[in-house]
Design a protein around this nucleic acid. Structure first.
Lengths: 223, 223
DNA sequence: GAAGATAGTGAACACTCGTACACACAGTGA
DNA sequence: TCACTGTGTGTACGAGTGTTCACTATCTTC
C-alpha cells in the first residue's frame, strides 16, 4: 500500500527555489521511506515516488533525469552521513578508540537508518553506476583508515599493503555490524547493545594480533 | 535486450518427468544467467524469464507459485553449493587450515559464480522471505564454525559467546572476500590471487590474537 | 504592471507486468 | 486401445510502467 503523503504543491511557498527544493526533497524522502520499509531501491518506480511526493509523474523530470539519477543524489546524502560519522569517531578520545568508534557507529546508524540501509543496498544494486560509486567510496574509507592506523605505535613501520589489509578487515567488520544494527527493530535496544559488544570484541581481537604481525609471518616474504 | 535462448519444448523428451525437469531447469538457469550479468533478482520478471526459457508465461506456474518461490528454489541450490565448499574446506589438511580454506573458497566461488552472486544479493533482497532464509543459513554456518574452532587448542575453554564472536568475524571476512571475487572479471586471475592473499593475511592476523584473547581483556568481566 | 522564466498539470503514448482460463497435445497406465 | 493426467499454448484482461507534450499558474525581473 502506498501511503497518501500530503502533497507539497498545495501549501504554496514564497520563493520559487523554496518550492523547488521542497518537492525535490519530498521525492528523495519518499524513496528513503520505502527503503526503510524494507523495499529495494531497484524496485522503486518513478510513478509511485511521484505520487508519494504529491506530484504528477512528469514533474519528476524537473528534478532528476531518471531514477538512477535520484539514486546518485541519495548516494551523496548517504555518504555525507557516513562521513559525518567517521569525523565524529575520529574526534573522540584516541585512548578509547575502539569503544568510541563503535558507539559513534551505532548512534549514527540509528539516527540515519534509511541512509545506511540505502548504502547497504547499493553494494549489490542492479545499477552498475550505484555499485561502482559504493565501492569507490568504501575503498576511499579503507585508505583513510589505513593512514590513520599508520600513526599507531605498532604500525608505523608497516607496508602499505599490510595497512590496507588490516584496514579492510576492520571496515568489513564495521559494515557487517551496521547491517546487523539495521536488522534490529527500532525498539530493540538490548539487541543493539549486544551487537555493539560483539563488534567491540572483534576489533579488540584484531588489534591484539597487530603487535606480533610481521614477526609471526616474516618467514614467508623475505623482502 | 533479452537473448533468444533456444526453446525447450521444441526438442521433445521421451518421458514426461524429463520434460518437466528440463523446463524447470531452464527457468532456474535463465534467472542465474541474468544474475550473473549483474541484474538484481528483485527486478527479474516472470515473463522475461519464461521467454528466456522458451516457454509461455502461464507455463511458469506449472513449476513455481511465484517469482519468490523460484527464488527460494534458487536459495536451496545456492546454499547447497556453499555447503559443498565448506565440506571441501574441512576435508583439507588442518595444519594448513587457513590457506586451504581460502583456496577452497576461491575455487568454489569461481566455479559457481551465479549461485554465490545470488546469495550475496539475498542479503538485502526486497523479499523478506529470501532475506530471512539468508540470515538463518549464515547464522547456522557461523555456529558450525564456532564448534569447529572449539576443537583448536587455544579455544577449547572459550565461552560460547566468544566462539561466536570470532566465528562471525571470520565468516564476515569470508563473505567480503567472496563479494570481492565476484567483482573481478572472469579472466582477472591476478586480481583474484591478490584478494586471496589479503584474505589469508586477515585470517592469520585474527588467529594471532586468539591465544592472548581472554587474558588481555580479563579485567573487564570478572565473572 | 508587463514580459519572461519555470515548477507542476493532465492527457496520451506504447509498452511490460502478473494472472486467468479454455484448450491442445503428448506421455501414462489400464 | 482408450481414458486419464499433466505440461505447455494462445489469448485476453486490468493494472502499472517510463516518457512526451502542450498547457497553466505562479514567481521573478525589468
Amino acid at each position: 500500500m502506498i501511503e497518501p503523503t500530503q502533497t507539497v504543491s498545495d501549501r504554496p511557498h514564497r520563493t520559487q527555489t523554496e518550492r523547488r527544493q521542497a518537492t525535490r526533497q519530498a521525492l528523495v524522502e519518499a524513496a528513503l521511506l520505502r527503503i526503510q520499509a524494507g523495499e529495494n531501491f531497484d524496485t522503486l518506480s518513478l510513478r509511485s515516488l511521484s505520487k508519494a511526493a504529491g506530484v504528477v509523474p512528469a514533474a519528476f523530470y524537473r528534478h532528476f533525469d531518471s531514477l538512477e539519477d535520484l539514486g546518485m543524489a541519495l548516494m551523496d546524502d548517504s555518504f555525507r552521513a557516513l562521513r559525518a560519522m567517521l569525523r565524529d569517531a575520529r574526534r573522540r578520545d584516541p585512548k578509547e578508540a575502539i569503544p568510541a568508534s563503535i558507539s559513534s557507529l551505532t548512534e549514527h546508524v540509528q539516527a540515519n537508518r534509511p541512509h545506511f540501509a540505502f548504502i547497504a543496498q547499493a553494494r549489490s544494486s542492479g545499477s552498475p553506476r550505484l555499485r561502482a560509486t559504493y565501492h569507490a567510496e568504501i575503498r576511499l574509507i579503507v585508505s583513510e583508515l589505513a593512514t590513520d592506523l599508520a600513526r599507531f605505535p605498532h604500525m608505523s613501520k608497516w607496508s602499505a599493503a599490510d595497512l590496507q589489509m588490516v584496514s579492510s578487515l576492520i571496515v568489513n567488520s564495521m559494515i557487517s555490524t551496521t547491517e546487523a544494527i539495521l536488522e534490529t527493530r527500532e525498539n530493540d535496544v538490548a539487541g543493539r547493545t549486544a551487537i555493539a559488544k560483539t563488534a567491540e570484541h572483534q576489533l579488540r581481537l584484531v588489534m591484539i594480533g597487530v603487535p606480533q604481525w610481521r614477526s609471526a609471518t616474516a618467514t614467508e616474504d623475505p623482502a
